[in-house]
């Protein structure tokens, strides 16, 4: 049939000659190639000890952010839970009491905030949905666990450390 685009190339298939038909030279050549790979640099990353470099927009474990004064940004509006296609996020909201102003930025906050890491597909829709810039998927790879219940991450694992916590941690280290 005539080619309309004019870019069609008909491959010419020549009948194989004697050496090609007995296959052995080709096999030995292939074996030479595979053998040379024995001495090449290995691509393996020894994972728990070494970590692969991730790209800038890589999405890992979630973290709930604090503002510049160390107050939690999340107001428990539920938009992240609503946007989540895997329904991995649940939360319970609570009203801020007198004397808690240094902990939470606004009058409402998430008393319980849970992400089921087995359900999460790391699509990043929660961070897009968040109006308060409170959730980001900027953490490392979620580690493996032995029990399913351990994959439900609460605020203890998700909220980023406050300035005082960081100072305390540094104090321990120092």
């Amino acid at each position: 049939m005539e080619s309309l685009s004019g870019r069609k190339k008909v491959l010419e298939q020549k009948p194989m000659n004697f050496w090609e038909r007995i296959y052995l030279p080709a096999i030995f050549k292939g074996m030479g190639i595979t053998f040379m790979h024995m001495f090449k640099k290995k691509e393996t990353t020894y994972y728990p000890e070494q970590e692969r470099e991730f790209s800038e927009n890589w999405r890992g474990m979630h973290s709930l952010k604090r503002d510049e004064n160390g107050k939690e940004r999340c107001t428990a509006c539920g938009l992240c839970a609503l946007s989540c296609p895997a329904e991995a996020i649940t939360m319970t909201s609570a009203e801020r009491q007198k004397g808690e102003e240094h902990l939470y930025r606004e009058e409402k906050y998430a008393a319980v905030y849970e992400i089921n890491m087995l359900r999460c597909i790391f699509c990043g829709l929660c961070e897009e949905a968040c109006p308060k810039e409170a959730i980001y998927l900027d953490g490392p790879i979620v580690p493996s666990e032995f029990l399913r219940k351990d994959f439900i991450y609460g605020k203890d694992k998700l909220v980023e450390l406050s300035i005082t916590d960081l100072a305390a941690q540094k104090g321990v280290l120092a």
Partner: peptide, 14 residues
């Protein structure tokens, strides 16, 4: 073990 090791080395793994 050797099978897995040889396979790995021929495929640039360890």
């Amino acid at each position: 073990l050797a099978e897995r090791k040889v396979a790995a080395f021929l495929q640039d793994r360890v």
